[in-house]
């Protein structure tokens, strides 16, 4: 049985949600950006979040590791509530990897140093061990030969693969992707998606904001569609693409799929 199947089997046995949003609301000043979000992710599940820009999808996944604070409702990650308790936030951030639209690699550090920074300082891994692990993940994203270069010397696609490897070095239980391919040239999108598909096949719990509908179709367990700060529809890719329930979903799909 592959890791993936094992994770799915656990899922069917009704294992508890690893991420749980209950009635979450958030405002930017007067602007109500998240409205009554109720939503859960089970261990090993792969969620794709899509929707028009400004719909609150990035804000929602950034609430999971508290890069954004919600003002009402409850978010449980791995059983820990995300609130002002700094200890809780630090504990969760160790276990939740994040990949950003603009990569956000540290330009003053080499690729290898980018990968070993958090393991050494947060996990207190010995330097040698951290470097071996970093090289292992760089191999996996097929970029080990660039380990001693600086991020500025790499292409966008390579930088994003480094960013994914950097997240994996912390051995996270959840990976968050915030539009990981939106800043890439068309030719580089595939190399990043391939890495993400490989990761999904290994059973990683993933929440991914993306406009790549092909990726959603092949990889997602559930697709979540958001508009105006609300979850309009959440369903399996099959139902979502072939039989959308909601008018707004139909309009969105017709606009992004027929061009």
């Amino acid at each position: 049985m592959t890791e993936r199947n094992m994770a799915l089997a656990q899922l069917e046995q009704g294992e508890e949600a690893i991420i749980q949003f209950s009635d979450v609301n958030k405002w930017y000043g007067e602007f109500h950006v998240l409205k009554n979000i109720d939503f859960s992710v089970k261990k090993g599940e792969r969620i794709v979040v899509c929707g028009p820009s400004g719909s609150g999808k990035s804000t929602m996944i950034r609430c999971i590791n508290r890069l954004e604070e919600h003002q009402k409702g409850q978010i449980l990650v791995d059983g820990i509530e995300m609130n002002d308790n700094l200890k809780n936030i630090e504990t969760i951030r160790k276990d939740v990897g994040m990949v950003f639209q603009h990569f956000n690699l540290f330009p003053h550090l080499t690729i290898l140093e980018n990968l070993t920074l958090a393991p050494i300082w947060v996990r207190k891994t010995p330097k040698k061990e951290a470097e071996e692990m970093a090289m292992h993940y760089l191999e996996r994203v097929k970029i080990a030969n660039q380990a001693l270069k600086y991020p500025g010397q790499l292409s966008g696609g390579q930088q994003q693969r480094v960013a994914i490897a950097r997240g994996l070095c912390m051995k996270p239980r959840i990976m968050l992707f915030d539009e990981p391919t939106s800043a890439l040239d068309p030719e580089m999108i595939k190399e990043v998606l391939d890495v993400m598909i490989q990761l999904a096949d290994e059973g990683m719990t993933m929440v991914c904001v993306t406009h790549e509908m092909g990726f959603a179709k092949t990889v997602a367990d559930r697709v979540v569609f958001m508009d105006a700060g609300e979850i309009v529809e959440a369903n399996t890719p099959h139902e979502f693409f072939d039989n959308p329930k909601h008018d707004r979903t139909q309009l969105f799909l017709s606009q992004i799929l027929n061009h």
Binding site: H102, L117, W121, V122
Partner: peptide
């Protein structure tokens, strides 16, 4: 320094001083 640098550092669990 772009906001993304602060966020990336926060997201990996570094403390403020780190």
């Amino acid at each position: 320094i772009p906001k993304g640098q602060y966020e990336a550092a926060d997201a990996m669990g570094l403390t403020y001083w780190q």
